[in-house]
């Protein structure tokens, strides 16, 4: 903020001084320069001949997908059920580990800063790797199938749930905790009587939200052999059975739509 006195002694006010404005424009200018350079680089590495062709290719693929083989949907109920189970069990597995982890990671409930550091590391580790990559590795370790999918989804969700939950724990009303401490309660009682009731709505919201995300992710882990409907999608694409693939995409779309509906209903009921 700049207050300048002009020659007549009147005070002028502007949000920024001249140098501040100049800096601001410089920042924006450099962003533009970086974008231009990046575009040149991408452009030089693109096979434009294929890109020019893309509308025709898309139309061609779409043409081969239509009409979808609706009768194929009858065979998809099993894998669909598997997919929902991967998501649900994955969420439950994640919750069992993520909730205690969040209490270790939150500044106001951690028993020792060392626990907090370790917990934060586990959270970052879980979050840094996509569930598809976890699935890829787990299929190699424990073989293809549902279990690999459940664990992959679970591992990825631990970090997500823990991070949001420990932030909620750190934001609880501290005065209430101080009051319970002042009555002579144990630290564990302060957590169970003071912290837990305050974070329950957040926990429920986070869990339902993650379940919803997991439904979507569990449709993908099948692509690498970790069970569920993705496995069928992969087969259909490999066989170039495009009407089958289209039927699967429709089913996935409907499932994601209904899971979103369920999760939004559930969240409204809880909060």
């Amino acid at each position: 903020m700049a207050v300048i006195t002009d020659s007549t002694g009147e005070k002028l006010w502007q949000l920024r001084t001249r140098t501040e404005s100049l800096k601001k424009w410089l920042v924006w200018f450099s962003v533009l320069v970086v974008a231009a350079v990046a575009w040149r680089y991408v452009s030089a590495n693109t096979q434009w001949i294929f890109v020019v062709d893309s509308p025709r290719q898309a139309a061609d693929l779409f043409g081969r997908m239509v009409p979808p083989r609706i009768s194929y949907i009858g065979r998809l109920w099993g894998p669909l059920w598997d997919t929902i189970n991967i998501a649900t069990l994955g969420t439950l597995v994640a919750l069992v580990i993520a909730v205690p982890l969040a209490f270790l990671a939150a500044r106001n409930t951690t028993p020792h800063p060392l626990f907090r550091t370790v917990a934060l590391f586990i959270i970052a580790f879980s979050r840094s790797v996509n569930s598809l990559i976890w699935a890829l590795m787990l299929v190699m370790i424990i073989g293809p199938g549902l279990l690999a999918g459940i664990i992959a989804i679970g591992i990825r969700a631990i970090g997500f749930i823990s991070k949001l939950l420990y932030e909620a724990i750190e934001e609880v009303n501290r005065e209430a905790l101080e009051a319970i401490t002042a009555t002579g309660a144990r630290r564990s009682q302060v957590i169970f009587f003071g912290v837990v009731p305050q974070i329950l709505p957040a926990l429920a919201g986070i869990a339902v939200f993650r379940w919803d995300v997991n439904i979507r992710e569990s449709t993908v882990v099948g692509l690498v052999g970790a069970g569920g409907i993705g496995l069928y999608l992969n087969h259909a694409i490999n066989r170039m059975a495009w009407p089958d693939a289209a039927a699967i995409l429709i089913v996935i779309f409907l499932m994601v739509l209904s899971s979103e509906w369920v999760s939004s209903k559930a969240r409204h009921a809880i909060i």
Binding site: I180, T183, Q189, P197
Partner: peptide
């Protein structure tokens, strides 16, 4: 101890808040 902002656990009932005085 009695506090300015009451320092109750909002989501607990009146009885639960009162009983928290005997947690010790």
């Amino acid at each position: 101890m009695i506090f300015q902002e009451y320092a109750l656990v909002d989501r607990l009932t009146v009885m639960e808040n009162v009983l928290s005085g005997k947690l010790g």
